[in-house]
Design a binder for these strands. Structure first.
Lengths: 167, 167
DNA sequence: TTTTATTTTCAGTAATTATTGAAAGTTTAG
DNA sequence: CTAAACTTTCAATAATTACTGAAAATAAAA
């Protein structure tokens, strides 16, 4: 397979994976493009490579920066902004998880906590409801906590420990 | 908060969470409805509770069954089909992960493996590309493997071990 | 068998989400 | 300062995804 072809396929796959997981396809594609680019790219480069509009490129680049997956890079003597992606894949994973945890998991944990506060906790139906919600809340809380701890830990420590654990 | 209100809020939250993660909102809502229902529900019940059409209810119930999150339940002397959700939240998590792994993670792992097969592996650009893809592939493979192992393990074993590990 | 209850399918439509492109805003150079 | 280079915004539009509802299929009862 030719290199260009391979890059394109990688970009498409990453984009598809993203959209299956609720992440804007173009955002994922730009991320992929920068991940396999050996040099910083400008907005123009992104527009050209992915055939997207300036507005689209700009918005998704900003979003990637807000996720801390991409950084601006200034090239001396050039007025344009250039962009590079974080290449350490463990960092990438941590930052994606951190972002989604913050924006999507934590709010629902707060809601689940509140929901256990129903009137008439004595009625069998209410009891059942509270039990279900409590289970989910506790489970999610444990998961959240585990992820939190793993995120803070170092890669080698994590893999070393987890693989020993997992035989 | 009133019980009905709480149930509705739970259903809405679950639905929103689902759609943020690329799962059809109605499917997630039906799942939520069944999760907090103390008795089996018919298609009619689901249509009524969530104000959705018969077609929509039917399709999403089938999808939930294919994910193994919901089961049919027959009530003797009644021709209608009734549905119940798996209530053990650890089982629920395992089944969701299993399904998404199979449908979305494994295909991309295969692709990443192939992509390392580019022409002219000697060129610096190709070398860089292969290195990036290889990193991602290895990382994803490790994650996949870990999840696989956890999925097979028992809940108590998992939490016992992971919490000991995580201090 | 025919009738009736129930489930499934899917073309058409609606709702949601993403994208464009041009105007407004900002920054730097001269 | 003004002009040019570049970035951002956002209303209009396109693309995608989800939903409806009625017809067709299936299954049970009569």
């Amino acid at each position: 397979m030719k290199l260009q072809e391979a890059k394109t396929q990688f970009i498409n796959s990453w984009g598809r994976l993203g959209s299956e997981w609720g992440i804007n396809r173009t955002m994922a594609q730009i991320h992929a493009l920068l991940l396999v680019s050996d040099k910083p790219l400008s907005t123009e480069d992104v527009m050209q490579e992915l055939s997207v509009s300036r507005g689209n490129a700009n918005m998704n680049l900003r979003e990637l920066i807000s996720w801390d997956l991409v950084q601006k890079e200034l090239i001396p003597g050039d007025r344009k902004e250039y962009f590079v992606a974080e290449k350490d894949i463990w960092e990438v994973a941590k930052r994606i998880v951190r972002e989604r945890k913050r924006k999507e998991i934590e709010p629902i944990l707060r809601e689940l906590k509140q929901l256990q506060d129903v009137d008439d906790k004595k009625s069998p139906e209410a009891k059942e409801f509270v039990k279900s919600v409590k289970n989910i809340h506790e489970f999610a809380g444990k998961m959240d906590k585990s992820i939190e701890t793993m995120m803070k830990a170092d890669e080698n420590w994590f893999f070393g420990a987890i693989f020993k654990l997992l035989k």
